[in-house]
Design a binder for these strands. Structure first.
Lengths: 201, 201
DNA sequence: TAATTAAATGAACGTTCGTTCTTATAATAA
DNA sequence: TTATTATAAGAACGAACGTTCATTTAATTA
């Protein structure tokens, strides 16, 4: 009928995003309809268009927000003055923690790249590359300072990211390992993979 | 109108699968319509139903065939009597090669698990676990024989698989590295990650 | 050769899709 | 207080969806 008492646009917008996120993560962008999102939010379909010009912009907003929050979280890590092996450990723990905390947003950012129209795709790809470069630079500095022994910093970075991203595919909070144990194990795997010699082996 | 001269059911079935594969890989299962598949194959939509009872079965067939071909290809690898480090090297090269050769089928098997109905999902998950166990057992045997030093064979296997699966996200045949160089680099990263000490470092 | 089966077409089914338009009213600005 | 803007509902748009059906004819079997 008409505007509802107490309705606030900004709140509805947030509700749309937080409702759409798990739905898209579970069923995929094109399998989730605007009507399904609207029903889950508790509004009429047409109300969605007061906050987003179209469906595509909902997905794009989810992905941009995710990448922004990833970069912001990384900026809170303090790696100044640390050795390359310390930095790589920090990155490893950070990446696992972030992925485990936001599995659905991570999943979407990975799976729905192909659902983005060219412009949005480019935007996200660029943000992703910035993040990858952080890791690559850490590895490169370790090679330069002689503590890492691996032939190609870029390939090593891709390998490490693949390894870490895999955690979300099998990690369950109620599993046999605590998150700390998992982090410890991955720190070990990661440092060794780039040829860092862990004392005592 | 009617059956066409020279039409053979088995050929059309293969054509449907090989046509649908790249389309689903690019746009996603639910974003690709039966009409789009039919048009690409060059038949009427309804003809698809002479060969598959519904859309879901096309996806399931693609994924089952992929997993079968993966397992068959692995069975052609001869690892009898080899050391754990040799077996891990064989697995690494095998996995990269297979993934690079069939990037689209690999992509679908990874991305469209969620698009499978429960029964099919269970089938594919089971096949996937069999494959993962191959790697886990190799790593476990290396730990037992004392050549690998890593705390958890299962986690290590997941890490290695994640690392190797990542290759498809960035590998381009026309890139700066040949496939052999990439394989060599990953063999190094993989063996090191599980704590195998490569001579000469 | 006759009967049956396989493989295709095209029309049609009801449903759902993303989106737009009109209208109503709450909240805010002038 | 009045005018404007923001936020919602609901009806409706044409298009597309997966699937079914009747029909036709080629290929195969009896």
């Amino acid at each position: 009928m008409a505007r509802l008492k107490g309705s606030v646009g900004a709140e509805t917008k947030v509700a749309i995003l937080s409702t759409a996120l798990p739905m898209i993560a579970q069923y995929g962008y094109s399998a989730v309809s605007m009507r399904q999102i609207a029903e889950a939010v508790g509004v009429n379909v047409s109300a969605l268009y007061n906050h987003f010009p179209n469906k595509q912009q909902i997905l794009l907003r989810l992905m941009i927000d995710h990448m922004d929050s990833l970069m912001a979280a990384w900026d809170n890590q303090d790696i100044r003055g640390k050795t390359a092996q310390e930095q790589l450990e920090i990155f490893t723990r950070f990446h696992i923690r972030f992925n485990v905390e936001k599995p659905k947003a991570v999943f979407i950012s990975f799976m729905e790249l192909r659902s983005l129209e060219p412009e949005g795709h480019k935007t996200i790809e660029k943000q992703r590359r910035v993040y990858e470069d952080i890791l690559r630079d850490i590895i490169r500095s370790g090679i330069n300072s002689g503590v890492f022994h691996t032939s190609d910093a870029h390939v090593a970075a891709m390998s490490v990211l693949g390894s870490l991203n895999g955690v979300n595919t099998w990690f369950r909070a109620e599993g046999r390992m605590s998150q700390k144990e998992i982090e410890d194990t991955y720190v070990d795997l990661t440092l060794r993979s780039v040829g860092y010699e862990i004392k005592g082996t």
